[in-house]
């Protein structure tokens, strides 16, 4: 599932972009050090392959709905982590541009969620150690399943975090997690089967192919476990630092809304059973304890107690609405004007 611009705050969007650009720069540098000439066209064409393959739908057994290939895992297995990350970034860039899938600011998040985890965490920490040099098809299926599920769970959890940290959505953490993780379990299972299926198919049809790519992909530039761990810790510290800096300078970027949701007993209990149950979990999993999930200074809750000044705090007033309508009307007029002017031109 793709993160969307409209749900993002500038702080979160920027942080993820910085992380993505840093990893992308690192991957390019690593690749460039010892790249085989044939890798550049190969990467590009494989990107186009992932894109085309994503357009072929599969009917998910028993559900009637359809899914498609994501591609992160399969690329990491074929091309190795560095090249795979760049290709995945390219595929998502093309999607963001041509289909506006997610949007351009959220692209940083999406590359991170769908590229970083499969390439730089799951591949070196799960896939590689478990698969070894084995070509056993059963093992490939099992390990691919595990890898794809892990990658997608991490990605889905990131979407939750990015949305919550941005503070544009009212969804409480627990309910959001319960929404996202199971869906992505199903997606991960499909992804795992398809990944394993394609790898096994290629291994049986043209066994030499994957080896020849492995030979030409930056000779021996596999990443070591230690390096991955260290890098990850460093990135986590930087990310955390950046986030808390933003949080302290731009409080509204992190305005949490859990309290006001759960704090009010009146709120349709029947409808929000899950949310209420999960409230407990939330409090226990206080993952950013400093923020306490408390609404910040410009708390719109005040509007409730002071209906005499309707909605000044939330920036909406009658004159505001009137102004907005007038402005939009003018913009439409301008648009229509230019259109008809052009029309006469032609």
């Amino acid at each position: 599932m793709h993160m969307a611009d409209a749900l993002l705050s500038p702080a979160v969007g920027t942080t993820l972009w910085v992380g993505t650009v840093a990893v992308g720069g690192y991957a390019s540098k690593k690749l460039k050090e010892r790249i085989d000439d044939r890798m550049i066209p190969l990467m590009g064409v494989l990107g186009a392959f992932i894109f085309a393959a994503q357009m072929i739908n599969i009917t998910i057994p028993g559900t009637g709905s359809s899914g498609h290939l994501g591609g992160g895992m399969i690329l990491a297995i074929i091309l190795g982590p560095h090249a795979a990350f760049l290709v995945m970034a390219s595929v998502l860039t093309v999607q963001a541009l041509f289909f506006a899938d997610g949007g351009l600011l959220a692209l940083g998040c999406n590359i991170w969620n769908l590229g970083f985890y499969p390439c730089f965490l799951v591949y070196p920490l799960i896939y590689k150690p478990l698969i070894g040099d084995s070509h056993n098809s059963g093992r490939i299926i099992a390990v691919s399943l595990l890898s794809a599920i892990a990658a997608l769970q991490l990605g889905a959890f990131s979407v939750v975090m990015e949305t919550l940290l941005s503070g544009k959505s009212e969804l409480p953490f627990g309910a959001f997690v319960l929404l996202m993780q199971p869906i992505h379990l199903a997606i991960g299972v499909i992804e795992g089967f398809v990944t394993a299926g394609v790898i096994n198919y290629v291994l049986s049809a043209r066994p030499e192919l994957l080896e020849s790519i492995a030979a030409s992909r930056s000779h021996g530039a596999e990443i070591s476990l230690r390096k991955v761990m260290i890098t990850f810790v460093v990135l986590a510290v930087i990310t955390g630092g950046a986030l808390s800096w933003f949080a302290s300078t731009h409080p509204d970027g992190l305005e949490w809304s859990i309290e006001k949701v759960t704090g009010k007993g009146e709120l349709q209990e029947a409808e929000h059973g899950i949310a209420r149950v999960l409230k407990g979990i939330q409090k226990k999993t206080a993952f950013l304890p400093g923020y306490n999930f408390k609404p910040e200074g410009n708390d719109p809750k005040k509007a409730e107690t002071a209906p005499a000044r309707p909605g000044i705090e939330v920036g909406t007033s009658v004159s505001g609405i009137v102004g907005a309508v007038i402005v939009l009307g003018m913009i439409v007029l301008i648009g229509v004007g230019i259109r008809s002017f052009r029309g006469r031109d032609a």
């Binding site: 390019s28 186009a48 093309v94």
Partner: peptide, 22 residues
């Protein structure tokens, strides 16, 4: 990075070719 942009251009060039193939 030049490498990234080069393969992005290849991706674009072969997008339509491979979609047709698919």
């Amino acid at each position: 990075p030049a490498l990234f942009v080069s393969q992005l251009l290849f991706l674009y060039r072969y997008l339509f070719v491979l979609m047709e193939e698919a």
